[in-house]
Amino acid sequence: MSYAKELLVAQLAVQRAARLTKQVFADSAKGTVSKSDASPVTIGDFGAQALIIAALKKNFPDDEIVAEEEAAKLREDDSLAEHVWNLVKGTRLDDEKAEKEVLGGSVQSKDEMLDLIDKGDSKGGRSGRIWAIDPIDGTKGFLRGGQYAVCLGLMVDGDVKVGVLGCPNLPVDDAAELSADIGNGEGRGVIFSAVQGEGATSRPLTTGALEEGKRIGMKKITDLSAASFCESVEAGHSNQGDAAQIAQKLGITRPSVRMDSQAKYGSIARGAGDIYLRLPVSKTYQEKIWDHAAGDLIVREAGGQVTDVLGRRLDFGHGRTLAENKGVIAAPAAVHDQVLKVVQEVLSV
């Protein structure tokens, strides 16, 4: 089955949402509020989610949506809602055809915006078409001026078929070496995308029509000691001590690159890095599907393998979380088993 329309809509929806997030990113006051789990959310999260869902509902009205945010905070605070609404109604692509024919034009009212945000309340599952949205993945990175990603994936019967990542602070150049300060300098903004069975691509992130994409692939590794790996900035997201031991056992001498968001998936998919480790920090924590769906597919379509620490493929059919998985290991397919073996040795699993 072709997913050409789904891919086009997803790419343009992410591109439009990324334009909104960049406006907020440039503002020193990002309109931050806290959710019940104490994690931060910004006006950019709300606005980007509304724009993406608007595009999905225009094109695929019967599809379900699993999204990270809900509009309760906005309904309680009209001034905050008004701030988000001003962003949403003012954000359009420069390309009129893409804006009207593909995305369906602008959101018509503040009430419509709030209702759209709340349409991301699907429970997920193993049947039907379900989109997973993280409007700003890596909110803490977004707030500190680092890496973040606008993430969108389509699952059909629990299997990811389309994945798109908009990474406004990654360099366009696929050959740019992965480093802690990779987001500094000119030429930033890239969109990664993949369709199951069709490979993965990258293209510059623009404010209008899509630029031409080019195929990307993971770097071929012959000597693991020369490999590089990336992990989360937040120690609460991944066990950094265990990661250091794993790197030592693999003979990796280069320090890890710590960055926020699914920008890590995109970076290794195009060969800027080699291995991504997200190691369990709690026996009870469950990863959210919107944090991994797009990146998982993009890495696999670029020649990589993605599993949990027990060697199981990530299972997106259990609802809103990866309930049956623990941690994430993403690496080139040829060396994934080697990495997995050492991970299991260090974690004693």
Score class of each variant (00 low, 15 high):
residue 105 G to C: 05
residue 106 S to R: 01
residue 108 Q to T: 15
residue 108 Q to D: 15
residue 110 K to S: 11
residue 110 K to D: 12
residue 112 E to L: 04
residue 112 E to F: 08
residue 114 L to N: 08
residue 115 D to M: 11
residue 117 I to R: 01
residue 121 D to W: 06
residue 121 D to M: 08
residue 122 S to Y: 04
residue 122 S to T: 11
residue 124 G to H: 01
residue 125 G to T: 14
residue 125 G to Y: 10
residue 126 R to S: 15
residue 127 S to W: 11
residue 127 S to D: 14
residue 127 S to Q: 14
residue 128 G to K: 00
residue 128 G to Y: 05
residue 130 I to F: 04
residue 132 A to P: 09
residue 135 P to N: 07
residue 135 P to T: 10
residue 138 G to E: 10
residue 138 G to A: 05
residue 138 G to Y: 03
residue 139 T to L: 00
residue 141 G to N: 06
residue 142 F to N: 00
residue 142 F to R: 00
residue 143 L to G: 07
residue 144 R to G: 10
residue 145 G to I: 12
residue 146 G to L: 07
residue 146 G to A: 10
residue 147 Q to C: 13
residue 148 Y to F: 15
residue 148 Y to W: 14
residue 148 Y to L: 08
residue 148 Y to C: 07
residue 149 A to M: 10
residue 149 A to N: 06
residue 150 V to W: 01
residue 152 L to D: 05
residue 152 L to Y: 04
residue 154 L to F: 08
residue 154 L to K: 01
residue 155 M to P: 00
residue 156 V to W: 03
residue 157 D to N: 15
residue 158 G to E: 13
residue 159 D to P: 03
residue 159 D to R: 07
residue 162 V to C: 02
residue 163 G to P: 00
residue 164 V to L: 04
residue 165 L to E: 11
residue 165 L to F: 08
residue 165 L to M: 13
residue 166 G to F: 03
residue 166 G to A: 07
residue 167 C to N: 11
residue 170 L to W: 03
residue 172 V to H: 00
residue 173 D to L: 10
residue 173 D to P: 12
residue 173 D to E: 14
residue 173 D to S: 13
residue 174 D to E: 14
residue 175 A to M: 12
residue 176 A to W: 09
residue 177 E to I: 15
residue 178 L to N: 04
residue 179 S to V: 11
residue 179 S to E: 11
residue 181 D to V: 09
residue 181 D to N: 08
residue 181 D to E: 10
residue 182 I to A: 05
residue 183 G to L: 07
